[in-house]
Simulated assay, not measured.
Amino acid sequence: MTESTITPTAGKPFPEFSLPDAQGQTHTLSGLHGRYVVLYAYPKDDTPGCTKEACDFRDNALLKSHGAAILGISADDAGSHADFAEKFSLPFPLLVDEHATYLKSIGAYGEKNMYGKVTEGIKRQTFLVDPDGRLVKAWLAVKVDGHADAVADAIDRDRARRA
C-alpha cells in the first residue's frame, strides 16, 4: 500500500488491504478471493447514518444469498467497533484503520462538504470487488437509503455479465 491516493477504476485490480477487525483478526482482500466483496467506508460508529447503512447491509437478503463478504471500514478503534457491532448485531467485520492510511490511499478520506460546512474526514463510499479481486463498481457519494439494494443489484448485473 502506498501513501498516494489512487482512483479506483472499474475492471482493474482493487488495492490489497491487511487490516484488523474489532477482535484483532486480520482481513485481506486476497483472503476473500472467489467471493464478491463489499467494502464500505463510513465516517463513525453508532451515528444515525452509519447505523442505518450497517443495518441495511446486515439485513439485505440478496447480499446474503450471493454470499458476499461485507466489510465496514472506518478510523474508529477496535473497542468502538466491538461496541457498535454488538449493539446492532452486525455479523460482518468492521475494519480498524485508525490513521485512515488505507482509506486515504483509496480516496475515501479527504475534504467533504456537509450542509455547506467543509471538513476533512472519511467519505461515505462503497467499493464492490468481484471474485477475482477487480473493482466492479465504486459509489463515491453514497446516499444511505436504498444503497444496500443498489449494491446487490450490481452483483446481479455482474453475475449475469459473467454467465
Rank of each mutant, 00 (worst) to 15 (best):
T5C: 12
I6G: 04
T7H: 14
T9R: 15
A10L: 07
G11Y: 10
P13R: 14
P13K: 14
F14R: 04
E16L: 08
L19N: 01
L19Q: 07
L19A: 04
L19M: 06
P20A: 04
P20T: 02
D21E: 06
D21S: 09
A22D: 14
Q25A: 14
T26N: 13
L29G: 04
G31D: 12
L32Y: 09
L32T: 06
H33Q: 10
H33V: 01
G34P: 02
G34S: 09
V37I: 05
A41D: 01
Y42T: 01
K44P: 00
K44Q: 13
D45G: 12
T47Q: 13
P48W: 05
G49P: 05
G49K: 05
G49F: 08
K52L: 14
A54R: 10
A54D: 09
A54H: 12
D59R: 08
N60W: 06
N60Q: 15
A61P: 01
L63W: 07
L63F: 07
L63N: 06
K64T: 13
S65M: 10
G67M: 04
G67H: 06
I70S: 00
I70H: 01
I73C: 09
S74A: 12
H81D: 03
A85M: 04
F88S: 07
P91R: 08
P91K: 11
F92G: 02
P93E: 02
P93G: 01
L95M: 03
V96N: 02
E98A: 15
E98M: 10
A100E: 13
T101S: 11
K104F: 10
K104P: 05
G107T: 13
Y109K: 05
E111K: 15
E111Q: 14
K112R: 15
N113V: 10
M114V: 15
Y115E: 03
Y115R: 06
T119K: 07
I122E: 05
K123H: 12
K123A: 12
D130G: 08
G133V: 11
R134P: 00
K143R: 14
K143I: 12
D145I: 11
A148S: 15
A148H: 08
A148R: 13
D149V: 13
D149F: 07
A152V: 09
A152K: 11
A152M: 11
A154W: 02
R157M: 01
D158T: 05
R159Y: 00
A160P: 00
R162C: 05
R162E: 11
